[in-house]
């Protein structure tokens, strides 16, 4: 829509602002993304295919998918349960719970990883107990899952708390007054009302779960083909000056980011009103 001339900024200023925004985007986002692709394909597509189908790379992909497929459902269930409790009920310690849910966002990922080493590592609080029972957590898959769950745990809840608070309790109360049980109310009324918010939260949670580096790096031990997730595999390859392979695996992660972004934009485009309840 055209604005009357005297109500708009001067044309030159507009162009300058748009130019700065585009240049910044280009420099900070498109250039690095392009560099990843160029590097990954610099020895041809054959080398790219070889790099991503190499056994250790495939193991890293499988491990990343495994960790995400455990962490995301856990945080989905936790996130929905916590948001339900926080938005629909009054109880003591509610503010504290909200703050705690946000905690993983403000703690450095390295610390998030170290916490689990302190708890379950060989010298940790439960280290001896675990060792005597041959249970491996640190430098094994359970540790990766724990660290990932911890780091990604706010995504679903943060998305749902403002949405469910805004929706209030009236529809649930209506369902109860009509004879529905708690479960029926949840499945037939609450969940349909928040389904796109849930999807959105899961999407962001998944992107972070697959891409997490810091916390996972601390508990992983970097055993190739065993405890290296994709981001860790990228680092290992890069440190060995194996740039083509490093960027090939990185390009898979970048592809994941692009898919996430596309799905996210689609959800925002189709269901913007519902998602707008987030802060």
């Amino acid at each position: 829509m055209a604005h009357p001339r005297h109500l708009s900024e001067p044309r030159l200023l507009q162009l300058l602002l748009i130019g700065i925004a585009l240049a910044y985007l280009g420099l900070m986002i498109f250039l690095p993304l392009g560099a990843v692709l160029v590097q990954a394909l610099q020895d041809g597509s054959g080398a790219w295919v070889a790099a991503v189908t190499e056994p250790d790379a495939l193991a890293a992909v499988r491990l990343t998918l495994l960790v995400a497929s455990i962490a995301v459902p856990l945080n989905l269930v936790f996130g929905v349960a916590a948001s339900w409790a926080i938005s629909k009920y009054e109880f003591r310690g509610k503010t504290l719970l909200v703050t705690l849910i946000e905690l993983p966002f403000s703690v450095s990922p390295v610390v998030s990883g170290l916490v689990f080493v302190l708890l379950f590592g060989a010298q940790g609080w439960f280290g001896e107990w675990l060792a005597s029972r041959d249970i491996e957590i640190i430098f094994a898959v359970p540790g990766l899952v724990l660290a990932t769950v911890f780091v990604t745990f706010p995504f679903v809840a943060r998305q749902l708390i403002p949405l469910m608070t805004m929706q209030g309790r009236e529809e649930e109360e209506a369902a109860l007054s009509l004879g529905a049980s708690g479960w029926q109310t949840f499945w037939r009324v609450t969940l349909p009302n928040i389904r796109f918010g849930v999807l959105y939260g899961v999407l962001l949670c998944n992107a972070r779960a697959m891409g997490e580096f810091g916390a996972v790096s601390v508990v992983s031990g970097h055993i190739r083909g065993e405890t290296n997730t994709m981001p860790l595999q990228v680092e290992v390859l890069y440190n060995e000056y194996n740039f083509v392979a490093a960027f090939a695996v990185a390009s898979l992660l970048a592809g994941l980011a692009l898919v996430t972004l596309l799905l996210k934009s689609f959800l925002e485009w189709r269901h913007g009103d519902e998602l707008a309840a987030r802060h």
């Binding site: 009236e170 529809e171 109360e173 209506a174 369902a175 109860l176 007054s177 009509l178 004879g179 529905a180 049980s181 037939r188 009324v189 349909p192 009302n193």
Partner: peptide, 18 residues
């Protein structure tokens, strides 16, 4: 409430939008 045999009408209707 579910077992009381009441009907409740809310100020803002509380119809199920979906």
């Amino acid at each position: 409430a579910a077992e009381r045999g009441i009907g409740f009408v809310f100020q803002h209707y509380a119809l199920f939008g979906h």
